[in-house]
Amino acid sequence: MESDIKLIDDNGKRLDGRSPDELRKIKIEAGVLHRAEGSCYLEWGGNKVMAAVYGPREALPRHTQNPLRAIVNARYNMAAFSVDDRKRPGPDRRSREISKVISEALEKVILLEKFPRASIDVNIEVLNAEAGTRCAGLTAAGVALADAGIPLKDIPVACAAGKIDGHVVLDLGKEEDNFGDADLPIAISPRTNEILLLQMDGHLTVEEFDKALEMAINGCHVASDIQKKAIMDKYQNAPEVK
């Protein structure tokens, strides 16, 4: 999409004043819901996301059960009030795709063999959307899974990189996403740097792609530290002995 907006100024700063390799502000709180077994509230720039985990519990209907391992049902949903115009509620083509890729990313980190025939249900609710909701949702889901006490090989984390005005930058904002050239959301397992999810929208050359990937992985590690701190804060500060 062509536009007259200048996304990067002469000093190399972006519209919201960030440098090319800077993330938006991330705030994570673990264990916010009482009915769910694990939960997380996350703010990532203007994104506000709530994730809740239920299970492991018996998978229903029965034919979905796998006798050898658990199944993961992630459900990504955008609230009607999450965008400027009202979003028509209910699953659509986009949210079903995101639900699927997030489920598959989470399957790679959960120790599914421990719960044959079970399902682990992850609900991701986007309350406010501002570019990069699938990354925010997956990051929140990772914290919620750990909060639920589900055995994990790693806490998954996601972050995007992209290209605006010919420059490769980290973590696209709303205008950058709408008027930029490319968007590359990835999710990784931060301990091993294994890629759990990789999607791309737009065009990048091979060199740009490599640079964006490296940048996004670095961004993931920054977000991962915030995730771990959020979980620690919740449980370490439980009442101590005087």
């Binding site: 750990a146 055995p151 994990l152 090989k153 790693d154 806490i155 397992s189 931060p190 301990r191 771990k228 979980i231 620690m232 449980y235 370490q236 101590e240």
Partner: peptide, 8 residues
């Protein structure tokens, strides 16, 4: 103090 650990 008992030490809290997180996955991974």
């Amino acid at each position: 103090k008992r030490e809290i650990v997180i996955p991974s």
